[in-house]
Design a protein around this nucleic acid. Sequence first.
DNA 1: GATGAATGAGCATTCATTCAT
DNA 2: AATGAATGAATGCTCATTCAT
Lengths: 235, 235, 235, 235
Amino acid sequence: MWKRLVYDYHSYFDHQSVFMIKKSRKEKEKKARRDLIIDSALQVMKEKGFENATMDEIAEAAEMGKGTLYLYFESKTALYLAISERGARLLNQQIARILVQEATGLELIEKIGFVYLDFIRDNPLFFTAFNYFEHVVNEGKMAGTSLIDDCNTHAREAMAYIVRALQIGMQDGSIKSTIDPRMLGIIIWGASRGVMHMAFLKQQNSHLQLLDDVEYDLNTLVTGFINLLRTGMKK
Amino acid sequence: MWKRLVYDYHSYFDHQSVFMIKKSRKEKEKKARRDLIIDSALQVMKEKGFENATMDEIAEAAEMGKGTLYLYFESKTALYLAISERGARLLNQQIARILVQEATGLELIEKIGFVYLDFIRDNPLFFTAFNYFEHVVNEGKMAGTSLIDDCNTHAREAMAYIVRALQIGMQDGSIKSTIDPRMLGIIIWGASRGVMHMAFLKQQNSHLQLLDDVEYDLNTLVTGFINLLRTGMKK
Amino acid sequence: MWKRLVYDYHSYFDHQSVFMIKKSRKEKEKKARRDLIIDSALQVMKEKGFENATMDEIAEAAEMGKGTLYLYFESKTALYLAISERGARLLNQQIARILVQEATGLELIEKIGFVYLDFIRDNPLFFTAFNYFEHVVNEGKMAGTSLIDDCNTHAREAMAYIVRALQIGMQDGSIKSTIDPRMLGIIIWGASRGVMHMAFLKQQNSHLQLLDDVEYDLNTLVTGFINLLRTGMKK
Amino acid sequence: MWKRLVYDYHSYFDHQSVFMIKKSRKEKEKKARRDLIIDSALQVMKEKGFENATMDEIAEAAEMGKGTLYLYFESKTALYLAISERGARLLNQQIARILVQEATGLELIEKIGFVYLDFIRDNPLFFTAFNYFEHVVNEGKMAGTSLIDDCNTHAREAMAYIVRALQIGMQDGSIKSTIDPRMLGIIIWGASRGVMHMAFLKQQNSHLQLLDDVEYDLNTLVTGFINLLRTGMKK
DNA sequence: GATGAATGAGCATTCATTCAT
DNA sequence: AATGAATGAATGCTCATTCAT
């Protein structure tokens, strides 16, 4: 009986484990190929630009058949959203690491800002991908897809981190604000996106003359922005 | 004899004035048709989306032959830039009106913010057009074209207005800041763009869930942003 | 009566002469404008290539309205044929000058060959125009037009000159041939066209590798051809 | 064991051979489809004329999607060059067959001439294609492409055959000439092209009146030309 | 006669997606 | 599962020609 149990247990375990391993192996491989495709897409985009990458080029870069891409992504849009999803996930991971640090709420906000800057600086394509996601959402395309949901979830998570930091700041007294922290979160999120966009353009050596009228580097720009957030402009 | 001279003079004058009127009429008509095309393009875009408008549709909407469009715009990109140019011009006109008002620098900045908001709210397509302009500049397309130059000039002009308001504010004591007003200008410009983008998405009833977590209207959003700019978050 | 006659005569004369002068003035002007258009077309073609010249460019080069071109030429094809016609006329003039010279038939043929070469060398566009004419005729376009007729007439005239020279040669004993001089004319005409075409390509610095395998200049080429012909036809 | 080895060996061999057959089958099919496209293009051209064939029509004639054409030819120009290439290849094959025959150099030249005539008579479109190739080369388009290279190679090969025949003729005494055989080759090549052009026009029932002044058939024309050449070159 | 603004048929080319193997 | 050949809808742009002024 005990043996039986053990046997059963083992049997059950083995069976399951084999099954799970098999399944997870397959899933891992599947995930690995999915990731490979995303990597390859980013590769191509780095050379040709986000929108100019073609499925052919991506497939070639991934050393796969073009049709294979469609086994992993139902459409080009889906692939692009997956890129956005990955970017958001990575960014959130970094922001999450901030949140556990010992610091005032205001300092947390500042740190999040710099993490954001570094992220965009290192992965400008993800910034474009974020915009793409918003564009897709705006057009109402792919609504209800899990990818859209995932991206939305990531966006809300990022926002949650910010709101969290704001709440901490309001509690520890480092931040004063009369408005709803969620509202404030959206404002800061939006404002940051805009400032990051400026930084992004600057980094691309864009010929937007506007940016050439002042000498500055990205750090100064973001530092200035964060200082502004901190103290405002009023004397 | 004297009368004769006068008569001749008038005759000459009339002749010339007729000529001038003729010329200006033609130019006016030309400008009118150009404007009509832009109007039609905006019309189509309102229905199909900025990027989805085709030259055929625009031509049809303008009740013109497709080729005619190319008499007024050398390419689709040029037409799109012209839309951006018009938007920037209109926006600047409104901002310019603020600048001459009697107010502190800080109040000017606030007013500019609200004008910007109203503008985007009323003409969301122009917002997309501005982004398009930046995209084109970033890709290096049409560099050296007068359209690109005009858009650049408008952008710098808008920035100049902001910097001007900041300088006024620094002088009248309503604004304190240790950083270069031009740097601050870029920050505010960027931040505003980002916040406006949020407002823009909100207005489009985008299914970006992020925006549905809080109840708010556009005014509250912008007011919050402007308050933040004014006083900062620090207690 | 006599007076009357004189009067009548004068009257008639004057009337006619005035009429004729007027008419001929108009016609001269008309012809002058027509020639101007052809000149301008050649001008444009020299820069852009025969086929690539557009009616717009030609009109601009002629400092005329585009519509005006159609007052002088019913179509672009007609204009191109007119160019061919002019070329053929000019070439024939030069060939005609040869025919009156004191020389053996064989020498005449040789001289015609060199005149042809010089003509093509100086006016390569006419060569292209001749081909264009043949192309149009082949397509059956504009059949029955006076321009087509004129070109045909010129071509036959050129051929007639050659046949004439051949006949002279056969008579003076410088040329021996058992075949019909008209047949021989066509052969020589065709062969010359082909050799001139080679010369033409060579002159254009065409990247036709075939032509780079031997060092030679145009004169050598044509001289060689004529020697070949001479030996072939010489008694 | 030994049997096994043999079996294995065969198995291996078979496997490979199957693989090779598979590969070559694919390549054959690819080539077949390429050829089919060229065939269809020629078909369309026969009806509409060389330059008037559109990619749509060609695709329809080939019972393919339009996009498929671009899997086999990078552009319309490339397709046209491929036609020229095929023509040159076929012509060269026929000329090559002449060269191995037992005959004097002079006779070889004559035979080449008649082969050329027959070829153009049977495939007038190839003649147009040859001209197209020269035109493309002259415009400097597609320089460095393998298609251009192939066409150039074919042209040089054809020339090489002629030069070879001339050299044979000079050696066996059937041809006398003081000039470089390569130079003479170009002359003959060019002259032939021109005479063939006349034959070509004649065959098309072109309304070039020039050609109607004498009664003759193509054979007579070419025979006359070759006689002329013969006498010219004969010792 | 002269003009040039307007026209629109016509065409090459791209590329995401499908599906037979 | 993987492939990649085939597809064809979609679209920007050209330019000869017309015609109202």
